[in-house]
Amino acid sequence: MSGTHHSEHHRIHRSGWLRAAVLGANDGIVSTASLLVGIAAAGADSAQILLAGVAGLTAGAMSMAAGEYVSVKSQEDTERADLQMEAHALEHNHEAEHRELAAIYRERGLDAELAEEVARQLMRHNALEAHARDEIGITAELSAQPLQAAFWSAAAFTLGGAFPVAAAATAPAAALLWLIPSLAIALLAALGATAAVAGGASPLRGAVRVCFWGTLAMGLTAAVGRLFGVAV
Rank of each mutant, 00 (worst) to 15 (best):
A154R: 07
P172T: 04
L142V: 13
E117S: 08
A169L: 01
T158D: 04
E129M: 12
Q148A: 15
A155W: 03
N126D: 13
H125F: 08
L142K: 15
S143T: 15
A174W: 00
A119F: 11
E100Y: 02
E91Q: 15
I138N: 01
R124P: 00
A89V: 07
Q121I: 11
A96E: 07
W152C: 12
A174S: 06
A89F: 00
T170Q: 12
G109D: 08
A150T: 07
P172W: 01
A112R: 10
A112V: 15
A150I: 09
H125N: 09
G137H: 00
P172R: 03
A174D: 14
A144L: 04
A154D: 13
D111S: 12
V165I: 09
I138Q: 04
D134V: 02
L147I: 12
Y105G: 11
A144D: 07
A150W: 10
Q145M: 03
T170W: 14
W178L: 14
H94M: 03
H92T: 09
R99Q: 09
A140P: 00
F157L: 15
A102V: 05
A102G: 13
L101P: 10
R99S: 06
A169R: 05
E116K: 08
E117C: 05
A162S: 13
P164S: 00
G161R: 05
G109F: 05
E116A: 15
V165W: 06
A174M: 02
A130F: 07
V165D: 08
H131I: 06
P146E: 03
E116Q: 14
R133A: 13
I104P: 04
A103T: 14
A96S: 10
P146S: 00
A154M: 10
A171T: 01
E107W: 12
A150N: 11
L159C: 11
H98K: 07
H88I: 08
Q145L: 03
E116S: 14
L122Q: 03
L128A: 04
F151L: 12
E117Y: 13
T139R: 05
R108Q: 13
E86F: 08
T158P: 11
L114S: 13
V118A: 10
F151A: 15
L147F: 06
I138K: 08
A112I: 05
T139C: 02
A168V: 01
G161H: 12
L90G: 08
